[in-house]
């Protein structure tokens, strides 16, 4: 009695995983085959022989997958390269942007440094996990949808035209990346000191003060921020396009001018720092006029230098095409 149940249980475990139309036929054949095998081993058909035969047949799920001609991999070799490509793109390009946006939003909301760092780490983990999970689900479904139809057929056959251009390693790219990040941080810093007013007059217990003149927010800070944002965007474009063109260098010059000229102007007028902050910070000491003159010259020189460098890098690319 127990012998039949063991085989019956095994057969049931196999056929419940295959399409309904084939179940009875496969079950009947499997029953016969197992009985044949057991009988050939041991004519008395003992429990032990049955157990051995079923052990050799192996995991019913695996056998069912073979009967149903179903893939036993989540993402097969056809889709795997595309899967990896999209995954790398999502995690290295999209995730940092999403994280940066979340962090900037927190900064604008006036959150403290700890909260901002927490948001950054939290976004990387949760959004990153979502990206991996959903991408995997989509690719697994595609694998199953096309798996039985025609495993060899690809969306479009590969041809040598698909080969990427051979490009020498982009040494300036790292610098441009750093410049973009640096300028983005500068934007964050300016917004943060305005919204969080982190400086405390007269030590830990004092009034919260902004470092920069609050009056700037009804005027000159906006072109400065817009110019910085433009610089960030153009540096990122340069990373993606692997070089400057004359046209992009001209846009860069415009953004840099939008940033540097108003900054130089408010420094020249000595309207850059919050007077309350200066009084508290300097104590008895007064900032000399020469400090502002020097600051104006440094800002203009650094900006001019940056613009000239971009145009120089642009020249060979423009000549080529």
């Amino acid at each position: 009695m127990s012998t039949t149940t063991l085989t019956e249980r095994y057969v049931h475990e196999v056929v419940r995983r295959i399409p309904a139309g084939q179940r009875d036929d496969v079950a009947a054949e499997l029953r016969g085959t197992i009985a044949d095998t057991v009988e050939a081993r041991e004519p008395a058909a003992t429990d032990e022989a049955e157990r051995d035969v079923l052990t050799e047949m192996g995991d019913p799920a695996l056998l069912a997958a073979r009967y149903a001609d179903r893939p036993t991999v989540l993402i097969g070799p056809d889709l795997y390269p595309t899967y990896i490509r999209v995954l790398v793109l999502l995690l290295t390009a999209v995730l940092p942007v999403v994280t940066a946006v979340a962090v900037v939003l927190d900064v604008i909301d006036g959150a403290g440094l700890g909260t901002v760092i927490g948001t950054g780490i939290g976004t990387v983990i949760t959004v990153g996990a979502q990206m991996v999970a959903w991408l995997t689900v989509v690719f697994a479904l595609v694998e199953r949808a096309q798996g039985s139809a025609a495993p060899e057929r690809r969306a479009s056959p590969w041809s040598p035209d698909d080969l990427p251009e051979h490009r020498p390693s982009d040494r300036g790219g790292v610098g441009a990346c750093a410049a973009a990040i640096g300028n983005a941080l500068l934007i964050g810093l300016i917004v943060w000191q305005h919204t969080a007013a982190p400086y405390r007059a007269g030590g830990a217990g004092g009034d919260r003060l902004q470092v920069l003149d609050p009056g700037l927010w009804s005027g000159w800070i906006w072109p400065i921020l817009a110019g910085l944002a433009g610089v960030v965007v153009l540096e990122l474009v340069r990373v993606a396009a692997r070089g400057w063109t004359v046209q992009r260098a001209a846009w860069y010059a415009a953004a840099e001018a939008l940033f540097a000229l108003p900054l130089a102007w408010v420094l020249y007028r000595q309207e850059f720092f919050n007077p309350a902050f200066l009084t508290d910070f300097n104590g008895d000491w007064t900032t000399p006029d020469s400090f502002y003159t020097a600051a104006v010259l440094v800002v203009l020189a650094v900006s001019a230098g940056a613009v000239i460098t971009r145009f120089r890098e642009a020249r060979p690319f423009a000549a080529r095409g």
């Binding site: 084939q22 496969v26 054949e29 499997l30 085959t33 095998t37 050799e56 047949m57 192996g58 695996l62 056998l63 073979r66 009967y67 001609d69």
Partner: peptide, 15 residues
């Protein structure tokens, strides 16, 4: 060849 390879193979060839 093992049974768990051969029996599904026969059905595939039939299909």
């Amino acid at each position: 060849v093992d049974g768990n390879t051969l029996y599904p193979l026969l059905r595939r060839l039939e299909k």
